[in-house]
Amino acid sequence: MTRTITVPPDAQLAPMLRAYAESVAARRRHFMFGLTILAAAVALSAVGIEIDPGLFWAKLGNFTSYFDRLLHLDTGALVWTDPGEWFWGLRRWLRLLGETLLMAYVGTLTGAVLAFLGCFLCSRNLMRSAVLRMVVRRLLEICRTVPDIVFALIFVIAFGLGALPGVLALAIHTTGALGKLFAEVVENIDMRPVDGIAATGGSWFAQVRFGAVPQVLSNFASYAVLRFEINVRGAAVLGFVGAGGIGEELIVAIRKFFYSDVSAILLMLVVCVMLIDTLSERLRHGLLAMEARR
């Protein structure tokens, strides 16, 4: 069966083509106008923060040459030509990397527990007291607004060098970040189970325990796993201020210009984070699939 295509006469086709061309031209003008505004905003921002394009261009070679130095041993040979020399401190670095992972794990677990306890107190659909909601929300905002590295500096002064300041800093920042995410999940639950428990005379804790918690556990676990990924990277940076982990070794290598050591430690961090991202992504997808099947 053949289909025939009806072509309108030129008298009807010409206005249609003209309207289409005008529409395309208008979209192009809007795009160029938006691009011009964006470029002007970027230029004004650069002037406001005193960025010097000439200095950037003049120093660009230092940036690229640094990466070239990272790829050479002290003997001048490329790092992958002598893996034994490149990873001479592998045993020590693995121990410090394990310390970083444990810092991220303990900090994430502690922060997730505190966020779990606080999210129900600041949820509009579960907590009737506006004052308590406001207080808890402000506390969570303080926890996540102050950078974890600032908390780490404070705790290093209080408790000295080591992993404890890093764990405390990660735990506090994780509490604020996960508390907000958990509260948003709670505020989007189906309230019918909660209302049913309340109608039978159940206490507020019973409403939360049997009406809200079963609906949010998988999402909570998914967010906690995602936060663990972030905290692994954060724990490495906290070592720069003496808060334990592989970061201490990395900052020492950077300051002493041990370029091959820097590249070896960075490679270990990248591989570790990639593995964690892959495993946690599969775990998160599995948890979300379980939630979708309910």
Rank of each mutant, 00 (worst) to 15 (best):
E85L: 12
V135M: 06
L139Y: 04
L139G: 04
L71Q: 12
F155N: 00
R95N: 11
V79Q: 09
A104G: 04
W88L: 08
W80M: 14
R95P: 00
T110S: 02
W86P: 02
A152P: 00
R92E: 14
D82S: 10
S123L: 05
R124M: 03
F159C: 08
R144Y: 00
P165Q: 02
F120H: 13
A58N: 05
V79T: 12
W86T: 15
M134Q: 04
V150E: 12
R69E: 02
L168S: 01
G89P: 05
L96D: 06
L70H: 10
G89N: 13
V135I: 12
W57H: 06
A130F: 03
D82W: 04
F67V: 07
T81G: 07
L126C: 07
K59S: 14
W86E: 05
R95Q: 13
Y66R: 14
S123H: 05
R133W: 01
M103N: 04
R124S: 08
R128H: 15
S65R: 15
C122N: 08
G61R: 12
V106F: 11
R124C: 00
F56R: 10
S129K: 10
T100H: 12
R95T: 11
V135A: 06
G76W: 09
G76P: 07
K59T: 12
L168Y: 00
I142S: 05
L140R: 03
G162N: 10
H72V: 13
I149W: 12
F56C: 12
D82M: 04
W86Q: 05
G162I: 06
T174L: 00
R91V: 02
G162H: 10
L126I: 13
P53G: 07
E99F: 02
N62R: 14
A152C: 04
V136G: 03
W86F: 15
L109R: 05
A163S: 12
D68K: 12
L170Y: 01
F67S: 05
G166S: 08
G61H: 13
F116Y: 11
G107Y: 00
W93S: 07
G160W: 05
G98Y: 13
C143K: 00
W88I: 07
L94H: 09
I157F: 08
I149F: 15
T145W: 00
G160C: 10
W88Y: 10
L60E: 15
V156K: 02
